[in-house]
């Protein structure tokens, strides 16, 4: 097992070391170095093709790296597939669920699949409500859900898994402001619970509101990194645009 010690003596929850990914002639990610501690929300900003989704897919082990390492709690994703996946939860831009099942049944299914089969239906319904779903919607079929409602079920699935780290890929894309706000509140709660969050987003406002740190990516490289408490909304937008115009 390969480990890296953080300041507190434990390895960061999520760590990229020289992480690279090449698809043919395209360098999707170039030697990314990154470390995210428990209770941190790291927002990756950048235009399409900057390497945000590739970074998340590498941490999830969905694609193998061309070089470098993606580490979860010090374990290399490439060599510890099960152990690292066990510690991760993931919410994609479009949470796709089983349309023939209700929100509660979907949660029940994924919870049981993830080894949480002992969670009762009442508890699972409570998790869905905690994730922001209306109580009367939990038993409706997912085919009747809006995108926001599906995102909330996705969050509930992540919550039920009680993962150490949460990977989010454009999670608020297409959500209305209220739903986005609720989503941010939820991430905040998870953060306080010690979960490490890596979120890829285009939403500068949400990144500033939700994140503890932001990293701006371009052409597969991390071009700058900022603490969100160091800058205001306008500063973040300015810095972002400066890097985009270079």
């Amino acid at each position: 097992m390969q480990t890296a010690e953080s300041g507190a003596g434990r390895p960061p929850l999520l760590e990229a070391r020289g992480l690279s990914k090449r698809y043919g002639a395209t360098q999707a990610l170039d030697a990314l170095d990154l470390a995210i501690e428990p209770g941190e929300v790291y927002c990756l900003l950048g235009p399409n093709g900057a390497g945000k989704t590739t970074t998340i897919n590498l941490f999830l082990g969905f694609v193998p790296p061309s070089a470098g390492q993606a580490l979860v709690s010090g374990m290399d994703v490439s060599t510890h597939d099960r152990e690292t996946k066990h510690r991760l939860a993931y919410i994609p831009e479009q949470v796709m669920l089983y349309r023939n099942l209700s929100g509660l049944e979907n949660l029940e299914y994924f919870a049981a699949l993830g080894g949480k089969g002992s969670l009762g239906r009442e508890r699972l319904a409570d998790i869905l409500v905690e994730a922001g779903l209306e109580r009367d919607a939990v038993d409706r079929r997912v085919s009747e859900y809006s995108k926001g409602m599906r995102q909330k079920v996705g969050i509930a699935i992540a919550m039920a898994k009680e993962a150490d780290a949460l990977l989010l890929d454009e999670p608020t894309s297409g959500l209305d402001p209220k739903a986005s706000n609720e989503f941010s509140a939820l991430i905040e709660r998870l953060r306080h619970g010690g979960v490490a969050v890596l979120m890829a987003t285009h939403d500068l406002f949400r990144a500033k509101e939700t994140g503890t740190r932001v990293g701006i990516m371009r052409y597969g490289s991390l071009v700058t990194e900022l603490g969100t408490d160091e800058i205001g909304h306008a500063d973040l937008e300015r810095v972002y645009l400066e890097h985009m115009h270079d």
């Binding site: 999830l60 969905f62 099960r82 996946k85 991760l88 939860a89 993931y90 994609p92 479009q94 949470v95 796709m96 669920l97 089983y98 994924f110 699949l113 993830g114 996705g154 699935i157 898994k161």
Partner: peptide
Amino acid sequence: EGGTWNLVRLFARPRRLLSL
């Protein structure tokens, strides 16, 4: 094709899912 594969893969090995 339904988009659930990545989510499912985080929870179970493909072999387990197939057997289920």
